[in-house]
Design a protein around this nucleic acid. Sequence first.
DNA 1: CTTGACCTTACCACCATGGTAAACCCTAAC
DNA 2: GTTAGGGTTTACCATGGTGGTAAGGTCAAG
Lengths: 159, 159
Amino acid sequence: MKSEMNNRASKPAMELADAHAKGLHSIGEAAKLTGLTAKMIRHYESLGLVTPTDRTYANYRVYQTRDIHLLRFIKSARDLGFSMKQIAILASLWQDSARSSAEVKKLALVHIQEMDERIHSLQQMRKALSDLAGRCHGDERPDCPILDAIACNSCHNPD
Amino acid sequence: MKSEMNNRASKPAMELADAHAKGLHSIGEAAKLTGLTAKMIRHYESLGLVTPTDRTYANYRVYQTRDIHLLRFIKSARDLGFSMKQIAILASLWQDSARSSAEVKKLALVHIQEMDERIHSLQQMRKALSDLAGRCHGDERPDCPILDAIACNSCHNPD
DNA sequence: CTTGACCTTACCACCATGGTAAACCCTAAC
DNA sequence: GTTAGGGTTTACCATGGTGGTAAGGTCAAG
């Protein structure tokens, strides 16, 4: 029916079946191919990271292989713990053939340091709490060094 | 003027000066005494954790020493990384003289395990990224093992 | 034509915290 | 007594990354 109309097109709108025939993907397929959820793919679009260039007549998003690659890039960077802001920069560097690897490495080192700080903070809390837990007999009696410590760390000035 | 009215009171409303004279505290003082912000003290109230029993005539919150203690308890528990939900339970255990220390310890161990998981996950990400960074020359050239890895971790099925 | 799976947008929620604005209150200094 | 500055009140909005839900449109297979 509308397939003739599609032939007039280098322009976007098309039927979903045509998109499939061209090796393009719906958002659900993109999700399966990347390990992301459709929800998050739309979210990344709202952040300006991955905007599919085409929509079908029915307004369905149409993803190209290049988009799938970019989504996978985002997924991998998220798996490495980068923030969306950092990922936006990484993606632009990735697509910039004139980038210097120094820029990328600098970003990575910054992120490593952020992770180090979070790890350190967690380890401190963990140690403090496990020390307390080690001193708690953990039976049916009510007295408990854990609660005592939480309550009285700063109990010197009750007023 | 209204001081006579205050005398009719075991009931809440009073002047701020009277509250001070009784050793009670405004929210700003409570903040200074506990290391919390007034903002967060109100937030904890909205969570049902610390509700000052009295207000002045002008509707100012009036904190008693007992409230200050509870706020400090919350602060310390936050500093140990407990979530607000966990803190709600801890606070109720703290105030329950019939508690068993086993309950508290169990909660602590759960939280320790949560922290262990977060630490482990961060360490994994850190290691992966620092391995990549170690292989990146980090100069003005564009080729970069970090970007390559992020882009191609899952590049086998480009389609 | 119906059914079920998919897609669309537009909301709300989490969690702990920060911020802002408009209004009101209190105290001290003039 | 008035004013200035700071404290307090409530009610909103924002963060970041993800999940959920609802109401409606679309597609393919039976």
